[in-house]
């Protein structure tokens, strides 16, 4: 062993401690944030999920009763699952397709590309806000912009899309798809990564633009599609603001916009059933983890990694 290798053992213990303390000092903002704002509440919610707790009294241990009720005896949980799964299964693929289509168009090297990119990205920045949700409520109301356009163009008097239980969820899906900007930017970066000579080889091989898209672009873009799909799915499961604003926090009409997180919120802050809401939160964690795990398991069958 060389002299240099021996050196660390000769450093006095107080000096090493002082160095480590400095290191932890610099880490402390993150550490405090993580333990106090993330891990602590998460652990306490795990504990609360096994209790009956209304904020007014001490938590009362009920074992797995909350989970049992969720599994067997909660029609609103089933309604929320139904709404949320509909939302996830519609909004994620639609958003992916829309973002990819726009990215492919923008990748053609058109003039003013940077402007278009910024304009298309804008809804992603502001789309999740309360203001946009309020605006959305106006747009799809019975006297909103959509119905005015339908009346002008086709003479069709549309319903209040938001007040109608069979259409309300689709207005929220549309709002989600409208925020395709960040996925589009990632797709654009992915498209730029595909070497041009791959397309040149394919064009010499006689492949049409469409065949090139399906045989070259899409397979080489699968890592990006996978990334976007996972992130969008997680986001969609956690969606809250639009449904809350559009239904005034009720999830109505007739629970047709009762997103899972909205139901969880109602249980906690309207019904003060914090134990039950905590159990709902952990069930959502399990669902998202399950979906993500499934995605990763499926990836080896359809995602192509170059290296």
């Amino acid at each position: 062993m060389s002299v240099t290798d021996d050196m660390p053992f000769r450093v006095p213990i107080w000096s090493r401690l002082r160095r480590q303390i400095a290191g932890y000092g610099f880490l402390s903002p993150w550490l405090i944030g993580f333990f106090v704002l993330t891990l602590g509440p998460a652990m306490s919610s795990l504990y609360l999920s096994f209790t009956d707790y209304s904020l007014m009294s001490q938590p009362h241990w009920v074992g797995s009763a909350n989970y049992a009720q969720i599994a067997s005896d909660d029609p609103r949980f089933r309604a929320a699952m139904n709404v949320t799964f509909t939302y996830v299964l519609l909004s994620v693929p639609l958003k992916l397709v829309f973002a990819l289509a726009v990215a492919v168009l923008l990748n053609k090297g058109m003039r003013g590309l940077n402007w278009f990119r910024a304009i298309f990205y804008l809804p992603s920045l502001i789309g999740g806000s309360v203001a946009i949700a309020v605006l959305w409520r106006q747009v799809f109301a019975s006297d909103g912009m959509i119905n005015q356009v339908l009346m002008t163009l086709f003479g069709y008097e549309g319903p209040s899309w938001i007040a109608n239980p069979s259409t309300a969820i689709y207005t929220l899906v549309a709002l989600a798809v409208w925020q395709f900007g960040s996925s589009m930017i990632i797709f654009l970066a992915g498209l730029r990564q595909i070497p041009q000579d791959m397309y040149e080889a394919a064009s010499i091989d006689g492949a049409s633009r469409t065949r090139q898209f399906f045989k070259i672009t899409l397979p080489l873009l699968t890592p990006v599609i996978f990334f976007n799909a996972v992130i969008l799915t997680i986001d969609a499961f956690k969606a809250f603001t639009p449904a809350f604003v559009i239904s005034d926090g009720s999830g109505g009409p007739i629970d047709s916009t009762l997103f899972y997180t909205l139901y969880l919120y109602q249980e906690a802050f309207t019904n003060f059933r914090f134990g039950y809401a905590s159990a709902l939160a952990w069930v959502l964690v399990a669902i998202i983890a399950g979906f993500t795990a499934l995605s990763f398991l499926s990836a080896k069958y359809w995602v192509h990694y170059d290296d």
Binding site: P195, D197, M198, E200, A201, A202, S203, I204, D205, G206, A207, K215, I216, P219, L220, T222, H304, D306
Partner: peptide, 18 residues
């Protein structure tokens, strides 16, 4: 390109990686 009856070997090989 495909109608010219040519084939090309690229410097980068341009093999389809997938």
């Amino acid at each position: 390109a495909s109608e010219r009856g040519i084939a090309m070997v690229f410097q980068s090989y341009a093999l389809y990686p997938h």
